[in-house]
C-alpha cells in the first residue's frame, strides 16, 4: 500500500529525512514513533504530495507520488499536525468544503458530517465560526474532517495532541473501527508509547531523520533486548530532552510571532 525507497529530504544543507525505506501493507495500522524534530512530519508531507523528496521514491496505492500526484491524492486522507481550518467559516462549512472538494455525494456527506460532529462532540457548535473554537475543539474538528471521505489510506500526524483522555479514546476507537470495518490503512505519527501499544500493528522508530528499527512491537522489544516498547525507545533514541520548538513548523512559528506582536 505504501512503499518508501531510500528517501532523502534536505532543506539547504540540513538533512531532515536521511535515506529511509519501509513498507506498509494494505489494511495495516502503522505507527511512526519518534521524538520532536525526528522527521515525521517531513516524511508524511513527502508521502502526501506536499513536499518533493530530494532523492528516492515513494509509492502509494500503486502510484508514484512524485510523478503522479493527482492520482495519488485520490487515495488518501490526512490530518495535519499544524492547523489547517478556515477560521472565517463555521464548523459545518469547513466539513462541507472538504466533502465537496473530495467529491463526496450530498446524501452521503449530510449524514456523515452529523455523525462525525457528534463523535467529536461538536454537533451543537456546528454553526459557530471556527475562530471561536479552543485549540482542542479545532483539533477534534480536523480529525472529523480527515475521516469524512473514507480514504483507502489515512495519515494522522500527531492526531491527539492537546486532547483530553475521553476524546482521545473516542477517536482511537473510531479509527480502529474504520480500520477493522472498512479496511482503511492507517499511518500515524506520535511520540506517545501507549497509543502505539494500543492500536499499531507495526512500528518504525525514527530519530534524526533515520529509521532506527521497525517491526511489530514484540519484534522491536526483542531486537532491542528490552522489557517494554518504552525502554526500547529510550535506549534507541537516548534520553536527551528534545526542544519542543523544533517540532513547531516554520509557518506555525510565524503565526505565533504575529499573534504575539
Amino acid at each position: 500500500m505504501i512503499e518508501v525507497k531510500n528517501v532523502v529530504k534536505k532543506f539547504g544543507d540540513f538533512t531532515a529525512v536521511d535515506n529511509i525505506s519501509f513498507k506498509v501493507n494494505k489494511g495495516e495500522i502503522f505507527a511512526f514513533l519518534g521524538p520532536n524534530g525526528a522527521g515525521k512530519t517531513t516524511s508524511i508531507k513527502m508521502l502526501t504530495t506536499l513536499l518533493k523528496p530530494t532523492s528516492g521514491e515513494v509509492f502509494l496505492n500503486g502510484h508514484n507520488v512524485t510523478e503522479n500526484p493527482d492520482e495519488t491524492r485520490k487515495s488518501f486522507g490526512i490530518v495535519f499536525q499544524d492547523p489547517s481550518l478556515d477560521n472565517e467559516l463555521t464548523a459545518y462549512e469547513n466539513m462541507q468544503f472538504h466533502a465537496i472538494l473530495y467529491g463526496v455525494k450530498k446524501e452521503v456527506y449530510k449524514k456523515r458530517i452529523v455523525d462525525l460532529l457528534k463523535m467529536v462532540e461538536l454537533y451543537d457548535r456546528k454553526d459557530s465560526f471556527v475562530k471561536t473554537f479552543s485549540g482542542g475543539m479545532k483539533r477534534r474538528l480536523e480529525i472529523a474532517r480527515g475521516l469524512l471521505h473514507h480514504p483507502t489510506v489515512l495519515f494522522l500526524d500527531e492526531p491527539t495532541i492537546g486532547l483530553d483522555p475521553q476524546t482521545r479514546n473516542h477517536i482511537w476507537t473510531y479509527i480502529n473501527e474504520l480500520n477493522k470495518k472498512e479496511g482503511v490503512t492507517i499511518f500515524f505519527t506520535t511520540h506517545h508509547m501507549e497509543e502505539v501499544e494500543r492500536i499499531a500493528k507495526r512500528v518504525a522508530i525514527i530519530d534524526h531523520g533515520k529509521i532506527l528499527i521497525d517491526g511489530t512491537i514484540e519484534e522491536i522489544i526483542k531486537k532491542a533486548g528490552k522489557e517494554s516498547l518504552e525502554d526500547a525507545f529510550i535506549s534507541l533514541t537516548g534520553s536527551t530532552i528534545r526542544d519542543e520548538k523544533a517540532n513547531i513548523g516554520k509557518n506555525q512559528m510565524r503565526i505565533n510571532s504575529k499573534l504575539m506582536r
Binding site: 502526501t48 504530495t49 491524492r73 472538494l101
Partner: peptide, 16 residues
C-alpha cells in the same frame, strides 16, 4: 491561506 495552513487542506485534495 498558506500561513494559516488552509492551503494544505486544498492542495492535498484530489482536485487538479
Amino acid at each position: 491561506d498558506k500561513q494559516f495552513g488552509f492551503l494544505k487542506e486544498t492542495f492535498v485534495a484530489p482536485v487538479p
